[in-house]
Protein backbone atom coordinates (compact mmCIF):
# COMPACT_ATOMS: atom_id res chain seq x y z
CA UNK A 1 0.00 0.00 0.00
CA UNK A 2 0.99 3.59 -0.40
CA UNK A 3 2.30 4.81 2.94
CA UNK A 4 1.54 8.41 2.06
CA UNK A 5 -2.22 8.10 2.04
CA UNK A 6 -2.91 4.56 3.14
CA UNK A 7 -4.73 3.77 -0.06
CA UNK A 8 -3.91 0.66 -1.50
CA UNK A 9 -2.97 -2.33 -3.27
CA UNK A 10 -3.73 -5.57 -1.51
CA UNK A 11 -4.97 -3.84 1.61
CA UNK A 12 -8.60 -3.37 0.71
CA UNK A 13 -10.68 -1.11 2.87
CA UNK A 14 -7.78 0.66 4.54
CA UNK A 15 -8.59 4.09 5.87
CA UNK A 16 -6.90 7.06 4.21
CA UNK A 17 -4.46 8.90 6.46
CA UNK A 18 -6.75 11.93 6.57
CA UNK A 19 -9.32 9.81 8.36
CA UNK A 20 -12.13 12.06 7.23
CA UNK A 21 -15.54 10.53 6.82
CA UNK A 22 -16.63 10.76 3.22
CA UNK A 23 -13.07 11.61 2.23
CA UNK A 24 -12.86 11.86 -1.54
CA UNK A 25 -9.72 10.21 -2.66
CA UNK A 26 -7.81 12.68 -4.83
CA UNK A 27 -4.43 11.07 -4.40
CA UNK A 28 -3.81 9.59 -7.82
CA UNK A 29 -1.35 6.81 -8.18
CA UNK A 30 0.52 8.41 -11.04
CA UNK A 31 3.76 8.13 -9.12
CA UNK A 32 6.25 5.33 -9.32
CA UNK A 33 7.09 3.42 -6.19
CA UNK A 34 10.65 2.25 -6.53
CA UNK A 35 11.03 -1.34 -5.51
CA UNK A 36 14.52 -2.61 -4.86
CA UNK A 37 15.15 -5.98 -3.27
CA UNK A 38 12.10 -5.92 -1.05
CA UNK A 39 12.37 -2.24 -0.14
CA UNK A 40 10.04 0.54 -1.20
CA UNK A 41 12.03 3.73 -1.53
CA UNK A 42 10.05 6.94 -1.66
CA UNK A 43 13.27 8.90 -1.67
CA UNK A 44 14.51 7.69 -5.04
CA UNK A 45 13.92 9.46 -8.28
CA UNK A 46 11.79 12.43 -9.24
CA UNK A 47 8.22 12.07 -8.07
CA UNK A 48 6.75 14.16 -10.77
CA UNK A 49 8.97 15.53 -13.46
CA UNK A 50 8.81 19.22 -14.08
CA UNK A 51 6.88 19.88 -17.27
CA UNK A 52 8.00 23.05 -19.02
CA UNK A 53 5.68 25.05 -21.20
CA UNK A 54 2.90 25.69 -18.71
CA UNK A 55 0.10 27.37 -20.55
CA UNK A 56 -2.75 29.81 -19.99
CA UNK A 57 -2.36 31.54 -16.61
CA UNK A 58 0.47 33.93 -15.88
CA UNK A 59 3.63 32.93 -14.08
CA UNK A 60 4.52 34.67 -10.86
CA UNK A 61 8.08 34.53 -9.54
CA UNK A 62 8.31 33.66 -5.84
CA UNK A 63 11.80 32.33 -5.08
CA UNK A 64 11.19 31.91 -1.37
CA UNK A 65 12.54 29.27 0.94
CA UNK A 66 9.67 27.36 2.51
CA UNK A 67 11.44 27.58 5.87
CA UNK A 68 12.17 31.31 5.52
CA UNK A 69 9.73 32.30 8.24
CA UNK A 70 11.01 29.73 10.71
CA UNK A 71 14.60 30.67 9.85
CA UNK A 72 13.88 34.36 10.47
CA UNK A 73 12.34 33.58 13.87
CA UNK A 74 15.29 31.31 14.68
CA UNK A 75 17.68 34.11 13.77
CA UNK A 76 15.77 36.41 16.13
CA UNK A 77 16.05 33.81 18.91
CA UNK A 78 19.76 33.43 18.21
CA UNK A 79 20.27 37.20 18.41
CA UNK A 80 18.43 37.39 21.72
CA UNK A 81 20.40 34.45 23.13
CA UNK A 82 23.69 36.06 22.01
CA UNK A 83 22.76 39.40 23.58
CA UNK A 84 22.09 37.72 26.91
CA UNK A 85 25.00 35.26 26.64
CA UNK A 86 22.58 32.34 26.78
CA UNK A 87 24.12 29.07 25.57
CA UNK A 88 21.20 27.20 23.98
CA UNK A 89 21.30 23.55 22.96
CA UNK A 90 18.70 21.64 20.96
CA UNK A 91 18.61 18.02 22.17
CA UNK A 92 17.24 15.57 19.63
CA UNK A 93 16.85 11.80 19.64
CA UNK A 94 14.40 8.95 19.18
CA UNK A 95 11.77 8.46 21.87
CA UNK A 96 13.21 6.39 24.71
CA UNK A 97 16.87 7.30 24.27
CA UNK A 98 16.96 8.58 27.85
CA UNK A 99 17.10 12.30 27.02
CA UNK A 100 15.20 13.43 30.09
CA UNK A 101 17.13 11.17 32.49
CA UNK A 102 20.38 12.45 31.02
CA UNK A 103 19.11 16.00 31.36
CA UNK A 104 18.07 15.53 34.99
CA UNK A 105 21.54 14.25 35.94
CA UNK A 106 23.19 17.08 33.97
CA UNK A 107 21.02 19.71 35.65
CA UNK A 108 21.72 18.24 39.09
CA UNK A 109 25.46 18.42 38.41
CA UNK A 110 25.45 22.05 37.24
CA UNK A 111 22.58 23.81 38.98
CA UNK A 112 24.65 25.10 41.91
CA UNK A 113 27.39 26.32 39.62
CA UNK A 114 25.56 28.23 36.88
CA UNK A 115 22.03 29.23 35.82
CA UNK A 116 20.25 26.44 33.97
CA UNK A 117 16.80 26.41 32.33
CA UNK A 118 14.93 23.86 30.24
CA UNK A 119 12.30 23.98 27.51
CA UNK A 120 10.61 20.59 27.19
CA UNK A 121 8.88 19.61 23.95
CA UNK A 122 6.41 16.73 23.79
CA UNK A 123 3.20 16.07 21.95
CA UNK A 124 1.29 15.73 25.21
CA UNK A 125 1.74 15.79 29.01
CA UNK A 126 3.86 17.96 31.29
CA UNK A 127 5.64 15.06 32.99
CA UNK A 128 9.07 15.90 31.59
CA UNK A 129 8.94 19.53 32.73
CA UNK A 130 7.76 18.27 36.13
CA UNK A 131 10.81 16.01 36.35
CA UNK A 132 13.11 18.96 35.58
CA UNK A 133 11.32 21.31 37.98
CA UNK A 134 11.74 18.70 40.73
CA UNK A 135 15.48 19.50 40.55
CA UNK A 136 14.67 23.13 41.38
CA UNK A 137 15.54 24.47 37.93
CA UNK A 138 13.00 26.48 35.88
CA UNK A 139 11.38 24.49 33.10
CA UNK A 140 8.52 25.10 30.73
CA UNK A 141 6.61 22.46 28.82
CA UNK A 142 5.61 23.02 25.21
CA UNK A 143 2.96 20.61 23.97
CA UNK A 144 2.99 20.43 20.21
CA UNK A 145 -0.39 18.69 19.96
CA UNK A 146 -0.30 16.96 16.60
CA UNK A 147 3.06 18.55 15.78
CA UNK A 148 6.10 16.34 15.40
CA UNK A 149 8.78 18.93 16.17
CA UNK A 150 9.41 22.22 17.94
CA UNK A 151 9.72 25.31 15.76
CA UNK A 152 11.44 28.63 16.33
CA UNK A 153 8.21 30.42 17.23
CA UNK A 154 7.42 27.91 20.01
CA UNK A 155 10.92 28.29 21.46
CA UNK A 156 10.79 32.10 21.28
CA UNK A 157 7.45 32.04 23.07
CA UNK A 158 8.72 29.60 25.72
CA UNK A 159 11.83 31.76 26.24
CA UNK A 160 9.52 34.75 26.81
CA UNK A 161 7.99 32.89 29.73
CA UNK A 162 11.26 31.78 31.32
CA UNK A 163 13.04 34.41 33.36
CA UNK A 164 16.50 33.71 32.02
CA UNK A 165 19.54 35.10 33.79
CA UNK A 166 22.48 36.33 31.76
CA UNK A 167 24.79 33.42 31.05
CA UNK A 168 22.08 30.76 31.32
CA UNK A 169 22.68 27.29 29.97
CA UNK A 170 19.40 26.62 28.16
CA UNK A 171 18.46 23.09 27.12
CA UNK A 172 15.68 22.64 24.59
CA UNK A 173 14.55 19.03 24.67
CA UNK A 174 12.90 18.48 21.31
CA UNK A 175 10.09 16.04 20.59
CA UNK A 176 11.45 12.48 20.49
CA UNK A 177 11.79 12.06 16.75
CA UNK A 178 14.88 11.58 14.59
CA UNK A 179 13.21 12.84 11.43
CA UNK A 180 11.18 16.02 11.66
CA UNK A 181 13.21 18.22 14.04
CA UNK A 182 16.24 18.02 11.71
CA UNK A 183 15.10 20.81 9.42
CA UNK A 184 13.81 23.27 11.99
CA UNK A 185 16.36 25.73 13.33
CA UNK A 186 15.35 26.95 16.79
CA UNK A 187 18.15 29.50 17.22
CA UNK A 188 20.30 27.08 19.20
CA UNK A 189 24.10 27.15 19.33
CA UNK A 190 24.24 23.42 18.56
CA UNK A 191 22.01 20.48 17.89
CA UNK A 192 23.06 17.59 20.12
CA UNK A 193 21.87 14.18 18.94
CA UNK A 194 21.57 11.43 21.52
CA UNK A 195 21.91 7.84 20.41
CA UNK A 196 21.52 5.20 23.09
CA UNK A 197 23.40 1.95 22.70
CA UNK A 198 20.16 -0.03 22.98
CA UNK A 199 19.27 1.35 19.55
CA UNK A 200 20.88 0.12 16.35
CA UNK A 201 24.42 1.27 15.63
CA UNK A 202 23.30 2.03 12.07
CA UNK A 203 20.87 4.77 13.12
CA UNK A 204 23.11 7.50 11.68
CA UNK A 205 22.67 5.90 8.26
CA UNK A 206 18.93 5.39 8.71
CA UNK A 207 18.32 8.98 9.84
CA UNK A 208 21.11 10.88 8.09
CA UNK A 209 19.48 14.32 8.09
CA UNK A 210 19.60 14.53 11.87
CA UNK A 211 23.19 13.38 12.18
CA UNK A 212 24.15 15.83 9.43
CA UNK A 213 22.50 18.67 11.35
CA UNK A 214 24.06 17.86 14.75
CA UNK A 215 27.43 19.10 16.00
CA UNK A 216 27.71 16.63 18.86
CA UNK A 217 26.59 13.03 19.24
CA UNK A 218 26.12 11.65 22.73
CA UNK A 219 26.36 7.89 22.83
CA UNK A 220 24.20 7.20 25.88
CA UNK A 221 23.48 4.28 28.24
CA UNK A 222 27.06 3.02 27.89
CA UNK A 223 26.67 1.14 31.19
CA UNK A 224 24.70 -1.40 29.14
CA UNK A 225 27.47 -2.04 26.60
CA UNK A 226 28.70 -5.26 28.28
CA UNK A 227 25.25 -6.79 27.72
CA UNK A 228 24.87 -5.76 24.08
CA UNK A 229 26.46 -6.40 20.70
CA UNK A 230 26.57 -2.68 19.96
CA UNK A 231 29.80 -1.80 18.13
CA UNK A 232 30.79 1.70 19.27
CA UNK A 233 33.48 2.24 16.64
CA UNK A 234 31.17 1.20 13.85
CA UNK A 235 28.44 3.54 15.09
CA UNK A 236 30.85 6.48 15.31
CA UNK A 237 32.15 5.57 11.84
CA UNK A 238 28.63 5.69 10.44
CA UNK A 239 27.99 9.07 12.05
CA UNK A 240 31.21 10.48 10.58
CA UNK A 241 30.30 9.19 7.12
CA UNK A 242 27.30 11.50 7.32
CA UNK A 243 29.06 14.30 9.14
CA UNK A 244 32.89 14.19 9.20
CA UNK A 245 32.97 17.05 11.71
CA UNK A 246 30.64 15.58 14.35
CA UNK A 247 32.06 15.37 17.88
CA UNK A 248 31.26 12.24 19.90
CA UNK A 249 31.06 11.72 23.66
CA UNK A 250 30.13 8.48 25.41
CA UNK A 251 28.29 8.56 28.70
CA UNK A 252 25.85 6.91 31.06
CA UNK A 253 23.30 8.85 33.08
CA UNK A 254 22.97 5.82 35.34
CA UNK A 255 26.61 5.18 36.29
CA UNK A 256 27.85 8.70 35.58
CA UNK A 257 30.72 7.49 33.41
CA UNK A 258 31.67 10.00 30.75
CA UNK A 259 29.87 12.82 32.51
CA UNK A 260 33.04 14.79 33.29
CA UNK A 261 33.76 15.23 29.59
CA UNK A 262 30.14 16.18 28.85
CA UNK A 263 30.04 18.75 31.64
CA UNK A 264 33.38 20.13 30.49
CA UNK A 265 31.97 20.48 26.96
CA UNK A 266 28.97 22.37 28.34
CA UNK A 267 31.10 24.69 30.51
CA UNK A 268 33.40 25.48 27.59
CA UNK A 269 30.47 26.28 25.29
CA UNK A 270 28.84 28.49 27.89
CA UNK A 271 32.10 30.35 28.53
CA UNK A 272 32.47 30.95 24.79
CA UNK A 273 28.91 32.30 24.67
CA UNK A 274 29.68 34.62 27.59
CA UNK A 275 32.87 35.95 26.06
CA UNK A 276 31.40 36.38 22.58
CA UNK A 277 31.72 39.73 20.80
CA UNK A 278 29.77 42.56 22.38
CA UNK A 279 28.79 40.63 25.49
CA UNK A 280 27.52 42.52 28.43
CA UNK A 281 27.90 40.01 31.21
CA UNK A 282 26.30 40.82 34.51
CA UNK A 283 25.55 37.63 36.31
CA UNK A 284 22.93 38.94 38.67
CA UNK A 285 20.72 40.56 36.07
CA UNK A 286 17.38 38.87 35.66
CA UNK A 287 16.41 39.42 32.10
CA UNK A 288 13.28 38.23 30.45
CA UNK A 289 14.24 37.21 26.96
Amino acid sequence: MCNVCGCGLGEGGSVPASGEPGHVHHHHHDHAHHHEAGAIDYGAGPARAHAPGLSQGRMVQIEQDILAKNDALAAANRRRFAEQAVFALNLVSSPGSGKTTLLVRTVEALKNELPVAVIEGDQQTATDADRIRATGVPAIQVNTGKGCHLDAQMVGHAADHLKLSVGTLLFVENVGNLVCPAGFDLGEAHKVVILSVTEGEDKPLKYPDMFAAADLMLLAKTDLLPHLDFDVDRSVGYARRINPEIEVLQLSAKSGEGFDAWLAWLRAGREAARSGPGQRVADDDQISL
Binding site: G57, V60, Q61, I62, E63, D65, I66, L67, P244
Partner: peptide, 20 residues
Protein backbone atom coordinates in the same frame (compact mmCIF):
# COMPACT_ATOMS: atom_id res chain seq x y z
CA UNK B 1 36.08 8.73 0.86
CA UNK B 2 33.52 10.27 3.17
CA UNK B 3 35.18 13.64 3.80
CA UNK B 4 32.32 15.39 2.07
CA UNK B 5 30.65 18.72 2.64
CA UNK B 6 27.20 19.00 1.12
CA UNK B 7 27.01 22.02 -1.17
CA UNK B 8 23.74 21.44 -3.04
CA UNK B 9 20.54 19.43 -3.05
CA UNK B 10 19.12 20.73 0.24
CA UNK B 11 16.74 23.19 -1.43
CA UNK B 12 13.17 23.63 -0.20
CA UNK B 13 11.86 26.53 -2.23
CA UNK B 14 8.70 27.86 -3.83
CA UNK B 15 10.07 28.88 -7.22
CA UNK B 16 7.08 30.24 -9.09
CA UNK B 17 3.33 30.00 -9.44
CA UNK B 18 1.01 29.75 -12.39
CA UNK B 19 -1.93 31.91 -11.43
CA UNK B 20 -5.24 33.01 -12.90
Amino acid sequence: GHQLQVTGGEELRVKELEVV
